[in-house]
Design a protein around this nucleic acid. Structure first.
Lengths: 205, 205
DNA sequence: AGCGCGTCTGGACACTGTCAAGATTATTGT
DNA sequence: ACAATAATCTTGACAGTGTCCAGACGCGCT
């Protein structure tokens, strides 16, 4: 197999079609939303026949599940780079920033990853990718608590609050930041993250 | 117009078709999920021609938007009855319980209400219904703070945490309550709600 | 070399949303 | 009371979709 292409496309008739299809699918979801996603349009963009995707992903659900799994991998990376070598509460607010930032940069895919009946959340690949993201949070909270593993209750709380913040920021239709100057979402997000971190650190272990 | 039917169906050829269609749509979303929802199947269940829904709701988006608005109305009612005449922190945890309970009882519609590109979140009817639900939280928080209106920052925090908790409880695929005995979701929810309420009340106004 | 097998094509089928035109019923004006 | 008008619903059509199927193509292995 050729290990060098200009980018990753350009190898249709042979080469890595699955890769090209997954990328086209991501773009399509981003541009038109989860519901407007179409297998045939995806195949069209990849320059292959309308039934080609089926041979690699079986189903439209299969393809979107792959897209979701890739999303979790990117989310994990983003949280890690954001955290970098920060420690303690600073590390927690850093991954919160990464989490929210990802959601705001890629809202359609973020929603797809968590809540969509067009993906199969029971597939192993997706579950492990999601667990990896979860692991980053667990590590960070455990470090704050100076414990081997994080307290489940604290995890539920932190995970819920950060996830909810990301979700509500996505549909800016909701009045969460009605008071703040429109468009300045990151400021409101930053303040809320600070509260979450405070609630986590203050709590008795 | 006849103001008494056995229930609300049974009046097809004439009567309140919009009502019957909205109900059929709710059931359909519940049974098969948001994505599998189909205008034609909905019409079939209501016993009318496949294009009948279009005349009342215009679009498939129009019908699902109506379903979402009804969802918010039910959510508001549920929070109010759960709160009943409780006051202070108890009132906040009560509406949290109502919020999470609604999400767990009607997960598909809950997700539809907040995150679905099959509904038009800009429609006035839906926005006001959503604002009414939000208003219940605002009232309750304002009462806790002994203020005229609630602090925006506190609202963002509480709203985010409760919403995130509901969302994560819905897809039990996530390891939020992996430690807890499977199926016993309400216990984990109760504990997390307590933490949220504590964080809200403790915070300096 | 030949050959197998994974990869991809093209066609088919049932189903979908939306539109236009027609039929049927209710409501209203006089 | 009765005809006209508006609202409601049906029927038919069209382009587009997901999924299956048999077949063509070309790579890599022995």
């Amino acid at each position: 197999m050729t290990e060098k292409g200009p980018l990753a496309a350009r190898a249709y008739h042979h080469g890595n079609l699955p890769e090209a299809l997954a990328m086209a699918a991501e773009d399509l979801v981003r541009e038109r939303g989860v519901h407007a996603f179409t297998l045939r349009e995806c195949a069209r963009r990849a320059g292959v026949a309308h039934s080609a995707p089926g041979h690699h992903f079986g189903d439209v659900t299969g393809l979107l599940t792959e897209v979701a799994a890739r999303g979790f991998e990117r989310l994990t990376q983003r949280m890690l780079t954001e955290r970098a070598d920060a420690t303690g509460p600073a590390a927690l607010s850093a991954i919160g920033r990464g989490y929210v930032g990802f959601a705001l940069d890629d809202p359609a895919i973020f929603v797809l990853m968590f809540h969509s009946d067009r993906v199969d959340h029971g597939v192993e690949r997706l579950r492990t990718a999601g667990l990896a993201s979860y692991g980053v949070l667990r590590e960070t909270v455990a470090a704050i608590e100076h414990a081997q593993d994080a307290d489940p209750g604290t995890l539920d709380f932190a995970w819920s609050a950060i996830h909810g913040l990301a979700m509500l920021l996505i549909d800016e239709a909701l009045p969460v930041h009605a008071a703040a100057p429109a468009g300045d979402r990151t400021a409101a997000a930053e303040a809320t993250i600070a509260r979450i971190v405070a609630a986590v650190t203050v709590h008795p272990r």
